[in-house]
């Protein structure tokens, strides 16, 4: 698939959001990602699965250049968003991160009010010209994150006072408030109970209408439930990438099969 001639790939470009080629990531001397090629499609949920320490988070963090904040981290290869190299000199990582939002494993709302949490991104990027604009963005984002009904009466209360599941949805609202094109989620449900997890999963499915979503998860069931594409990482390699149905029912690589059936991990 990746060796396809250039011509064919260009045809696919219409729906490809991210395309990564020959990506290597080093932490100092150790190589955490060893040559990954992958295409992430628009309006699709892509799941990254694999055993702990295989480099899922590392690769995910390459996509919005969060790795830049780690001194010893070095990224080589080619990662393009809509055909533009995101590691190009001319690209400002700060602007990139407004376009490629991120939700973290542990809910991490700012110790500010719910309103200010959501409004923070639009404020620093100057997305709202008036207070009414900002109010509208906040409401819309909270609705997107299915938190509006619970939060609308307590917008001025601290975001840290919400329950864990609500906090995570607040973080999602905060991420979508900057109208990103891609949403990266690193194990967004690992700190949540099953009910909150179900809510967030439902949310992810809805977000797919507007965004390309990449989700790292340790739960096979979750990957199977929410994603259309699945990528299996192992020891820094992208072992297999394809339709979720195919990966879970008919994996081509035996490592994928062992992992899915629970023999490695």
């Amino acid at each position: 698939m990746y060796d396809a001639p250039k011509l064919e790939r260009n045809v696919d470009d219409r729906t490809i959001k991210f395309s990564a080629r020959n990506v290597h990531v080093f932490y100092g001397e150790t190589e955490a990602i060893k040559g990954v090629d992958v295409d992430i499609l628009d309006n699709t949920v892509t799941a990254f699965i694999g055993p702990s320490g295989c480099g899922k988070s590392t690769f995910l963090r390459c996509l919005n250049r969060m790795n830049d904040t780690i001194d010893i981290c070095r990224v080589t290869g080619d990662i393009r968003l809509d055909g533009h190299d995101i590691y190009d000199r001319s690209v400002d990582p700060v602007q990139l991160r407004a376009k490629v939002g991120m939700v973290f494993q542990k809910p991490n709302p700012f110790p500010k009010s719910i309103y200010d949490n959501v409004a923070y991104g639009p404020r620093i990027h100057g997305l709202a010209r008036t207070r009414a604009d900002l109010d509208a963005i906040v409401e819309q984002s909270l609705r997107r994150a299915a938190l509006w009904d619970e939060a609308k009466d307590r917008l001025d209360q601290p975001g840290t006072g919400l329950s864990g599941g609500q906090q995570q949805r607040l973080c999602i609202a905060r991420a979508v408030a900057t109208s990103p094109e891609v949403l990266l989620m690193d194990e967004p449900c690992s700190a949540l109970d099953p009910i909150a997890t179900a809510q967030v999963e439902e949310l992810i499915d809805e977000l797919r209408q507007d965004y390309s979503v990449v989700i790292v998860t340790h739960s096979m069931q979750q990957a199977a439930r929410v994603s259309q594409k699945t990528a299996f990482f192992h020891l820094g390699h992208l072992v297999e990438f394809g339709d979720t149905g195919q990966i879970f029912t008919n994996p081509h690589d035996e490592r994928t099969e062992s992992y899915i059936t629970g023999r490695i991990g």
Binding site: N64, M66, T69, V94, Q95, L96, R97, A98, G101, M102, V103, F104, K106, N108, P109, F110, P111, Y120, G121, I124, H125, C171, R174, A175, A177, T178
Partner: peptide, 23 residues
């Protein structure tokens, strides 16, 4: 100050300067 706060701010596109002085 927990790193998660820095990550949160960086994640929505705050610059280093905004992270430090705002959070």
């Amino acid at each position: 100050v927990p790193p998660s706060i820095r990550e949160a701010a960086l994640g929505v596109g705050a610059s280093k300067h905004q992270v430090v002085f705002g959070h």
